[in-house]
């Protein structure tokens, strides 16, 4: 276990050190102490290492992650795991707005609540939120799965493409072109796997699935007057 004191040694040193770990590193386990809400902790990693942040972080924690597992023992500010490609990011507390935005792959687990715009423009990432999510979540989400064990806020899945949305609790309102869809066996299977990997104590049968009605994919001449 390597320990890095962020307050004493600074952010650039942390990210340079973590980013320089090769895929064959022996230093696979890292602990970051005194994060004190700092921005951009453990960003741009590209090695199968485990980083544990001992406290809450600010903006853009674990952004652009590849391969690494980043665990935050606290809450995170806006933009956690933004544009993640692979690996895992696990947040013990809450996440602020646009968690997992534009992510292409990997798994983001938020054990508390996520606020607005969770999974906005997601492109293949899997996001599991144990609590609730805020308004405008999964806006223009293209691919991947968003699983919400609690409730969803207003305008869920507005202008949705092909991402799958699973919500156990209530949905305050659906966004444009987002509809409830049939839960088929293959969806239950995907959901069960995600809940297991995210350590979420919930049964797939309790969820509803939402997806795109695909009415915005093509121009509708009846809407010409709106342009």
């Amino acid at each position: 276990m390597q320990t890095y004191d962020l307050e004493a040694n600074g952010l650039r040193g942390l990210n340079a050190t973590l980013q320089s770990q090769s895929t064959e590193t022996n230093q696979t386990s890292w602990e970051v102490v005194n994060p004190k809400g700092s921005h951009a902790i453990a960003v741009g990693l590209d090695a199968p290492i485990e980083v544990t942040v001992k406290g809450s972080t600010g903006y853009y924690c674990a952004g652009m992650n590849q391969q690494a597992t980043v665990k935050v023992e606290g809450s995170v500010g806006p933009g956690v795991a933004e544009n993640m490609m692979s690996g895992q990011v696990i947040v013990d507390g809450d996440a602020s707005q646009y968690a997992g935005a534009t992510g292409h792959g990997g798994l983001l687990v938020i054990k508390g609540n996520a606020s607005s715009r969770c999974g906005i423009s997601m492109k293949g990432i899997d996001i599991v939120v144990h609590g609730n999510i805020g308004h405008m979540s999964a806006f223009m989400a293209q691919a991947g799965n968003l699983v919400v064990c609690g409730d969803a806020g207003d305008a869920l899945g507005d202008s949705l493409y092909e991402a799958r949305l699973f919500v156990r609790g209530s949905v305050k309102s659906l966004g444009a072109d987002c509809v409830e869809k049939e839960m088929r066996p293959e969806h239950l299977e995907i959901l069960k796997d995600l809940l297991d990997r995210a350590g979420a104590d919930a049964s797939p049968e309790e969820f509803k699935r939402y997806g795109s009605a695909r009415q915005l994919y093509n121009f509708d001449v009846d809407n010409a007057a709106a342009y």
Binding site: G37, G58, S75, G77, P78, S96, S116, G134, H135
Partner: peptide, 27 residues
């Protein structure tokens, strides 16, 4: 406002209520 894109964090204890644009301000 309803869109809430400007950040906000609050903290409360028996001694105070605190507001910060970011958690950093409260540490």
């Amino acid at each position: 406002d309803p869109i809430a894109c400007k950040p906000a964090v609050m903290a409360e204890t028996d001694q105070y209520v605190a507001f910060g644009s970011e958690y950093r301000a409260l540490v």
